[in-house]
Amino acid sequence: MEFGHDTGFGGRTPMSELHVTIETKIPDEHIDMFYRLYEREFGALRTKAIARQVLHAEEFREEMVDPRVHKHVARTGTGEPIGVTTLTRHLATVPWISPEYFAARYPEHAARDAIYYAGFTVVASTARQGAAFHAMIESVVRVLVAERATVGWDICSYNNARFSFADSIRAVLDEQANVEIAVEDSQTYYAARFTGDGATKGG
């Protein structure tokens, strides 16, 4: 799960003024607004992480209208959408993960169709100081607790190092549920920069 910046826990938008809806399809008139927000918050990751972290516009739209990807949408008291978190139990919709890994690792959950993956969370700047973020994560946790589910997510090293997102998520989950969290996997990317005239050593 990747996050728009500044998902701190103080709040300018009171929790009582927020509600979260779980939607299978985002209305067309809201997709562009969410994509502009997504691009503003995630665009910088194109040059900060080797693995691609940013959905193309068409990929983003596909997720927003794919009923297999549930969108937990934070709204103000007037109904204005100010944030979205994606969650799916259809792991084939997440092209950068291996569904077979999760099925082998969690066979009991796989048999119950109770393995989920969290995609991204993004919150508008007017509410990004915590309340909307909290409300959406609470909505996701209610689903996962009810299903006794396993959920996976990923955070690139840049976001972890600069914004401590892993610690933030752990704190929120520990606050809301009895949950065991473990690092499942890691991947190290290398680069070799060749210098000189290209002659082989010892030639």
Rank of each mutant, 00 (worst) to 15 (best):
S16T: 14
R46D: 14
S157I: 14
T24R: 12
Y35H: 13
H5V: 13
F194M: 13
E39T: 01
L87W: 02
P95M: 08
T13S: 10
T126I: 13
S157G: 12
F34S: 04
F3V: 02
R193L: 12
E184M: 11
G198V: 01
D185I: 00
F163Y: 13
K71P: 01
N160P: 09
T24S: 10
H19C: 08
V141C: 03
H109Q: 07
E80N: 07
I22Q: 08
T93H: 03
A161H: 12
Q176V: 06
R142K: 12
Y117T: 00
R12F: 10
D28G: 14
M33S: 15
T93V: 10
R36P: 05
D6K: 09
R40K: 15
E29T: 12
D32Q: 07
R193C: 06
Y116G: 00
P95H: 07
Y106I: 05
D174Q: 12
V123C: 09
H70E: 15
G8T: 11
S125C: 08
G203K: 11
W153L: 11
Q176Y: 09
A74L: 06
T21L: 04
A44H: 07
G196P: 09
I115W: 00
G43L: 07
H109S: 05
F165P: 04
F102W: 15
S98Y: 03
P27A: 03
V151R: 03
Y38S: 02
G83I: 10
A110Y: 00
L87A: 06
M136A: 00
V94C: 04
V54R: 02
E29M: 10
F133M: 08
I50Y: 14
W96Y: 12
T86V: 02
S125A: 14
F60I: 03
R105N: 07
A161P: 05
D6C: 05
Y35V: 08
K48V: 02
A132G: 09
S125D: 15
H134C: 07
G43C: 04
R148E: 07
R68T: 04
D197M: 08
K48I: 04
V84K: 06
H70G: 10
G202K: 10
E108V: 07
R75M: 00
K71E: 02
P27H: 05
R40E: 14
H56M: 11
G10A: 14
R142W: 03
R89N: 11
I155S: 08
V20R: 01
D28I: 10
F3D: 02
F3S: 04
D66H: 05
S157C: 12
E23A: 03
A146G: 11
F60S: 04
A146P: 06
A44V: 05
G202C: 08
G83M: 10
G202Q: 10
W96M: 09
I181A: 05
A177W: 08
W153D: 06
V183E: 15
